[in-house]
């Protein structure tokens, strides 16, 4: 039985990876999950210098999901290379680094530094975080801005690049096509949907940032639709995510056209969610006599 998938020339042992920002640098979940069993570990966003992130409260629970406005707090690429990357290599994980920045120069800085580290398999370019004021999503909501950052990053990157798309746009296909045309090797979607919660008892915003990114099971149908739309519009691989909590959810994304899937908020609901989903996919394939996972990808019937 084959569970391997290929993303831009990189073979993943299975299609299940972690969603950036929900798994720390991998080390935080290593008590629960064997990192080398995952298709890949996608790190928390890494910037060129340390970022402090937003004030608290940064998280709030909502029906079927949660809002977050962490603001991409991270210790910066130097600490990532010195401390977190060696840990992941030692754990024999396939490493995808999520890259964030305020300016195109910031992104290039990080991408170039990671270029010296072939143990980083892929770069995921975060142009879709809704919680930082400069950079981030400003590159991800306009096709021209997305085109220029994709071209610049691609020109400086040694590893293949995955552009991570925002759902907070009028037509996500247009964004996917723009990134593809500009040289993206793969796409990942969706990042969180911008939301808000107000505490009626205190009459205050639940998040200090007022708005935050909505994630969790509540957003899954939107994500499935967007993955389907983009996967059928572009030729490059699409990594699907958005509310995946169970193996059934993961299969649904594969059928919609995702080559691989990422598990995010579900890690908070079940720290072994990623491994449980891999086992579930394996059992489903066995039960249905599917010998190659590629037979599932995009195989939704009309």
């Amino acid at each position: 039985m084959n569970c391997k998938v290929d993303i831009a020339g990189v073979t993943l042992k299975n299609p299940v990876m972690t969603a950036s920002g929900t798994f720390g640098s991998g080390q935080e979940y290593s008590d629960f999950v064997a990192l080398n069993k995952l298709g890949a570990v996608v790190t928390k966003g890494v910037s060129n210098v340390p970022w402090e992130g937003n004030p608290t409260p940064r998280v709030a629970e909502v029906y079927g999901g949660m809002l977050n406005a962490i603001g991409l707090q991270n210790p910066g690429v130097d600490v990532f290379i010195e401390r977190d990357l060696p840990f992941l290599v030692k754990a024999d994980a396939t490493v995808i680094v999520n890259v964030c920045g305020h300016t195109i120069a910031d992104y290039i800085d990080v991408v170039e530094r990671l270029g010296d580290h072939p143990e980083v398999a892929l770069l995921e370019i975060n142009v879709s975080c809704p919680n930082v004021k400069e950079g981030g999503i400003t590159f991800g909501q306009d096709p021209e801005a997305l085109t220029s950052i994709t071209k610049e990053v691609k020109a400086h990157a040694k590893q293949p690049i995955i552009m991570k798309l925002s759902p907070n746009v009028a037509d996500i296909r247009e964004m996917g096509l723009a990134a593809e045309a500009a040289g993206a090797d793969a796409l990942s979607l969706i990042n969180t949907l911008m939301g808000m919660k107000i505490d009626i008892h205190t009459r205050r915003f639940a998040l200090a940032n007022r708005t935050g990114g909505l994630s969790g099971p509540a957003i899954k149908p939107i994500a499935v639709r967007m993955v389907y739309d983009v996967a059928h519009a572009v030729k490059i691989p699409v990594i699907g995510m958005g509310g995946i909590t169970t193996w059934q959810d993961a299969i649904e994304f594969l059928l919609a056209g995702a080559q691989a899937v990422a598990v995010g908020t579900a890690n908070f609901v079940n720290p072994t969610a990623t491994e449980d989903i891999i086992t579930g996919i394996w059992d489903y394939m066995n039960d249905h006599g599917i010998t190659d996972i590629k037979d599932l990808i995009g195989n939704v019937q009309y």
Binding site: T22, Y29, T56, R58, N68
Partner: peptide
């Protein structure tokens, strides 16, 4: 503080 992961991964409760 409001927490999500409880294990230091999400950076929600700083």
């Amino acid at each position: 503080e409001h927490m999500a992961c409880g294990v230091g991964a999400c950076l929600g409760c700083v």
